[in-house]
Design a protein around this nucleic acid. Structure first.
Length: 594
RNA sequence: GCGCCCAUAGCUCAGUGGAUAGAGCAAUCGCCUUCUAAGCGAUCGGCCACAAGUUCGAAUCUUGUUGGGCGCGCCA
């Protein structure tokens, strides 16, 4: 195991250019320009160079000078000759910058020697609560849980990598009136399960739910029994409690199968956890004078929300029958996460349809003074999963699609693809190999397809597209990684033992392009952790794969003479490590062969 | 009716107030005696829904219009 310097390395060229510009601005135009954003960004077109600054255009009015003249003065004072070629003023006053090969070579060497590939840790580690996945007990996880689970896990992984202190919470629906019905049915149909442990394997909770619902709809006596069970559950009555436990345990086992398959870790803390805290929410709101009784229900009337009649809309805190709503639970959870979990950030990853609900809950919490100034709360919304017809994704018979089946299908299709390919190429592989590749490709495809879209828009689910071998897909990226491993095998190269400080020499255009892209990793991760848009990371990894494939196409590695070979091996190694890290942050595994 | 989200190439989508708006797929045409061609190159494809406004500069910000999705009092 090579020893990596355990220090923060910064490989983002942007940051260094930024500093140079800030200094030049002060020297050229005086100290009042200290701290001015130099408007640096990637060049809009590669022919202009690598980066551009638009600051001259911005300052034109303020300084009363033509933008090009300002740009000339700035570049006159820029001390960036170590980093880039002489800056060029172009068009109306853009300053174009092109990085020097020597600079890229140095930076890549730094990146190569760093276990974190030059990605800095967060300047201040925050306590982050991220609430995602959240299926309902006694129901199956379905396609509706897919995006929350995948996106939430990805964001958690990125924040964890930045060394924030992340608490991943699974806010499962384990409480509510539907449990009365379920428990009543359990007592009626499977009484042995309540007294003898493991007397019953509740194979299919969906069927149980359906049968219970049917009884509930048809039988008045059963309905009354169900209501009694809700009361008994609230009161903590032993047998009822046991039935509830049984349901929760069974669901938990089924959820865990899916989380294992998806490689997702979560701490379960369901709605029931906050149950004892609900009365205090009501009494505290009452004390604050926010609570109004209306038609028997205790409500907070909201600012900026109106109902169909144009009157202020209430948020119901306690129903007229004394029961609580999910808004109450969410308020209690919010308060607990701030006070007990000591959260600095609280992130909710749920569908966009809940935007109103969260805006309302946050408003009430804010008006109650429960959210300190330094605590940041964010709803991270995402769009619906649609079928290829553009309608909500359903099975042919109109049922919602079970998540387990969806994942199985993706794996099965990946397997079929692989087997067809093996036959075509006359390859023989073990069952173990085939099963593993199919799982990594299938699960990776489902995750990548979801994450590679801007989460705010609806997402059209298509097995064919996510498993396509070309384009912005999981298989394409996995293949780029496999190609590097191929080089390693063929040339018997152990990348971990590749010299500590490889001498890089970037000659070919494809090498320069790849090098520049590799060095943008930190910038991309920084951005994703700010705007919570994983598709930006996907885009980066896709472009990295493309650029690697172009390099692979035009720059032979194993047949290259020294010192070029070491340099190219280092580029391969950096690409592979960047892909592996990036994909792992998306929650994806890599393969050495496929 | 009100609120939130969305509208960019035939399709699926990127796009950070900046230069001639980009990918992928599909279509058409090339490239395997050379590290896995699951690859690479090229061609074709645009009224950034519409209209005003702000700005030196708008796909991007504001307002309005049209079209679509989601939600809106005792489910979560």
């Amino acid at each position: 195991m090579p020893s990596f310097p355990d220090v923060d390395a910064m490989n983002a060229p942007l940051e260094q250019l930024q500093t140079g510009f800030e200094q030049a601005l002060v020297i050229a135009f005086g100290p009042e320009l200290a701290g001015t954003d130099p408007m640096l960004g990637p060049a809009s077109n590669p022919k202009f160079g690598d980066y551009q600054s638009n600051i001259a255009l911005v300052l034109a009015k303020q300084l009363g000078q033509p933008p090009r003249a300002i740009a000339e003065q700035i570049i006159h004072h820029l001390a960036l000759s170590d980093i880039c070629h002489p800056p060029v003023v172009a068009g109306p006053g853009f300053i174009n910058l092109t990085l020097k090969a020597s600079y890229l070579e140095e930076q890549l060497a730094v990146m190569h020697s760093d276990r974190r590939l030059g990605v800095p840790r967060a300047k201040a580690s925050k306590r982050v609560v991220i609430d995602f996945s959240s299926p309902n007990i006694a129901k199956e996880m379905h396609v509706g849980h897919l995006r929350s689970t995948i996106i939430g896990d990805c964001l958690a992984r990125i924040l964890e990598f930045q060394e924030h202190d992340v608490l991943r919470l699974n806010h499962v629906g384990d409480w509510g009136t539907q449990f009365g019905m379920l428990i009543a049915y359990l007592k009626e149909a499977y009484p042995a399960a309540l007294t003898t442990s493991n007397a019953l394997e509740l194979g299919d909770l969906v069927t149980l739910y359906r049968q219970a619902k049917q009884r509930f709809d048809q039988d008045e006596v059963f309905r009354e029994a169900s209501r009694q069970e809700v009361v008994a559950l609230q009161a903590g009555e032993a047998i009822t409690q046991r039935a509830w436990q049984l349901l929760c345990e069974q669901s938990r086992r089924e959820f865990q199968r899916i989380y294992d398959l998806l490689d997702i870790k979560l701490t379960e803390r369901g709605e029931s956890f906050y149950n004892p805290l609900l009365p205090a929410i009501v009494s505290d709101l009452e004390r604050l004078g926010l609570l109004v009784e209306d038609q028997g229900a205790k409500c907070v009337f909201l600012e900026g929300f109106t109902n169909r009649e144009g009157k202020p809309q209430p948020l119901i805190i306690q129903k007229s029958d004394g029961g609580y709503n999910y808004a109450t639970t969410d308020l209690a959870a919010l308060r607990y996460r701030i006070q007990q979990d000591q959260a600095d950030w609280i992130i909710y990853v749920t569908d966009a349809g809940q935007a109103n609900h969260f805006a309302q809950v946050f408003q009430v919490a804010r008006r109650s003074g429960w959210i300190p100034e330094d605590v940041t709360i964010a709803h991270v919304p995402f769009g619906l999963v649609l079928g290829e017809g553009g309608r909500k994704l359903k099975t042919r018979s109109g049922d919602t699609i079970r998540l387990q089946e969806l994942l199985n299908e993706a794996i099965a299709r990946a397997r079929a693809d692989l087997e067809a390919r093996l036959q075509e190429e006359g390859r023989e592989e073990t069952e173990e190999f085939k099963a593993h590749v199919a799982e990594v490709v299938g699960i990776g495809a489902v995750k990548y397809a979801d994450l590679s879209q801007n989460r705010t828009s609806n997402y059209v689910f298509s097995y064919d597209k996510m498993l396509a071998l070309q384009g912005n897909t999981a298989p394409y990226m996995l293949y780029a990684y496999v190609r590097v491993q191929g080089i390693s095998r063929k040339g018997q190269i152990n990348f971990e033992k590749l010299t500590q400080n490889p001498q890089l020499s970037l000659v070919e255009e494809a090498e320069l392009v790849l090098a520049k892209h590799l060095l943008q990793l930190s910038e991309v991760l920084e951005q994703v952790s700010t705007d919570f848009l994983p598709n930006r990371l996907c885009q980066y990894l896709f472009e990295l794969s493309q650029k690697f494939n172009q390099f692979y196409d035009g720059c032979p590695v194993l047949t290259a003479a020294e010192p070029l070979q070491v340099s190219r091996l280092a580029l391969c190694d950096l690409t592979a490590r960047t892909l592996k890290l990036g994909l792992s942050l998306l929650g994806m595994q890599t393969l050495d062969r496929m």
